[in-house]
Amino acid sequence: MVNSENKKSFKSYESLDIDKYLHLRLADQIDWYDNKSSIMKNHYLFWKSTTFTSGAFVPFMVAMGINKWVTGLLGVIVVISESVLSVFKYHDLWIEYRKNTEMLQKELVMFQTRTGVYRDSEFPFADLVERSETLISNENINWANLTKNDKAPTEGNKKED
């Protein structure tokens, strides 16, 4: 069990030096995105496998004349699993979280090796913080866009006053 006094957040410090930022913020965010990516991937693969498996059995069961209730139930499972995928957008979130993991890791490696944009930078740590926080902020905006309800009217279904 982790002692809560030993596990401090970057928010608990008035100022962050390089080591604190790298460990308490950047590494934490990389781990969070990596974990969430794995979770979303597993959810996506489970529901997609459920769709494929159930869907494949429906025509087989109809051809074999197996109980119509069982066949109907498999059809319902297909609809439910595709609905879950549509509503929760596991695939989109999996890709988005994986992309952010890789981008933050790239920034960290380039900073640590002083390559890319950090090679000639006068303030490499400041550049790292700005670039990393921009990636994190953009992901938050993307997440909000992915998970919002699509209730905004489109050109074809706008109400006229």
Rank of each mutant, 00 (worst) to 15 (best):
A63G: 06
G116W: 02
T71L: 01
K48N: 11
R119G: 02
K41Q: 10
I66R: 00
S4Q: 12
D120R: 10
N157P: 07
M40T: 04
L26H: 07
E96N: 11
M64R: 05
I95Y: 04
M110I: 04
L45D: 13
K48Y: 13
A152V: 07
E130W: 04
N6I: 11
D19N: 15
N3D: 15
K8N: 09
G55W: 07
V78S: 08
V58T: 08
I18S: 07
T50F: 02
L45H: 02
K48A: 12
S83H: 03
Y13S: 05
T147Q: 10
E122S: 09
D127Y: 08
I136V: 14
T51D: 11
E14V: 13
W94Q: 06
G65W: 03
T154L: 14
F60S: 08
E130R: 15
L26S: 00
Y44T: 06
E107K: 07
L85N: 15
M103Y: 01
E160K: 14
A27G: 00
L16D: 08
S81V: 03
Y33Q: 00
I18D: 09
K89L: 06
A152K: 12
S121A: 15
N3W: 03
K48I: 12
T134G: 07
D19R: 14
L16W: 06
K89G: 02
S81K: 06
S49N: 15
L26K: 09
I66H: 03
R131T: 11
S49L: 02
S83T: 14
I80H: 07
V78A: 03
S38H: 07
A126E: 15
N35L: 13
T101H: 07
Y13H: 15
S38Y: 08
D127G: 03
L135S: 04
